[in-house]
Computed example of a mutant assay.
Amino acid sequence: MSRLLLLLFPLLIAPVIAQDELTDFDTARGHFWETLYPGGGWTLYCGLRFEAEGNGDGVMATIDHIYSMPRVYRALGCSSRLRCNQERGNEYRRIEADLHNMYPATGAVVIQRADSYFAGIESAESRFQECDFRRRGRRVEPRDIAKGNIARTLLYMQREYGLPLAEDMELLKSWNRVDPPSEQEMNRNDRIERLQGNRNPFIDQPQLADDL
């Protein structure tokens, strides 16, 4: 085993709870709308404009956990969100409150996504309205401009919390390369660090993904 792999190995298998500022989802939700998107923005999957807190002239937006919370509580050995709150307490709540894992999306797309995992899809069972969002069974493929954000989020969740990935690692590496961090994504990383005390290293150094 190479020295580099020995250094990376603990990060890949052991939960490292670095997010220790936001202790519950309600607090994180307030910061999400008030600090990350105070004037509104654009939804991740469809690029639709929304106003502050999902209100106003734009579409109604909601918070989507990229690494879905049902996947989190199953990975932690819980049967439901309620049981994870009871059995895993602060550990689960800090994961649920991690802003790096949250992006704005329309409620309709969140319902379409459900508890699916991300993949490349050649032929889709459904394509959501005018949005380049494909679904086939339990697999979904977002528009190209969102793929890097999603890949870097999933890799972060694996690194920080030791959560397993259903997604193909080579696919995530490819998405990370073809859709590098934008200025908006890097600025968002800065704001999240000020709120919860840690950064997504795959945004700062996208090449880290190639070493996994």
Rank of each mutant, 00 (worst) to 15 (best):
A119S: 06
A61N: 11
A119I: 01
R83D: 13
D115W: 07
P70C: 08
R83L: 15
E125I: 10
Y73M: 11
C84V: 10
R152W: 07
V110P: 10
H65A: 03
S79D: 14
G40T: 10
H100A: 06
D144V: 01
V59M: 13
N101S: 09
V110M: 08
R143H: 07
T62C: 04
I145D: 15
F133L: 08
R71N: 05
T62D: 15
L48E: 01
Y73R: 01
A146D: 08
D57H: 14
V140D: 08
S80P: 05
F50L: 08
E87Q: 06
E87M: 09
C84E: 03
N101P: 01
G58V: 11
Q112L: 09
N55F: 15
V59P: 02
G89D: 13
C46L: 05
V140M: 08
P104E: 03
L44Q: 05
Y45I: 06
I111V: 10
A119F: 11
S123H: 12
F128R: 09
I95L: 03
T153R: 14
R113G: 02
G120C: 13
E53W: 15
R136T: 13
T106I: 09
R71I: 01
T62S: 15
W42S: 15
Y45F: 03
G148Q: 04
V110D: 12
H65S: 15
T62E: 14
D115Y: 03
G58K: 11
A61T: 13
C46A: 12
G58P: 00
P142N: 07
G41W: 06
L163E: 00
F133T: 11
E141S: 06
M102F: 02
R152E: 00
K147W: 11
I63T: 14
S116I: 10
L165W: 01
F118N: 00
E141V: 02
G77M: 05
F133W: 09
L99N: 00
A124E: 10
R74W: 14
M157H: 06
L82R: 03
R127D: 12
R139H: 10
L155E: 02
V109W: 10
V72E: 09
T153I: 12
Y117F: 10
I121W: 04
Q86I: 08
H100P: 00
L76E: 04
V72S: 00
G56F: 15
A108T: 05
M69N: 02
A146Y: 01
R135K: 04
L76D: 13
E91C: 14
E130Q: 12
G120N: 11
M157Q: 03
C131E: 00
E96I: 13
R143L: 04
A97P: 05
Q112N: 14
R135H: 03
E51S: 12
A75G: 02
N55V: 13
P164D: 13
Y103G: 09
A151G: 03
S80Q: 08
R136S: 13
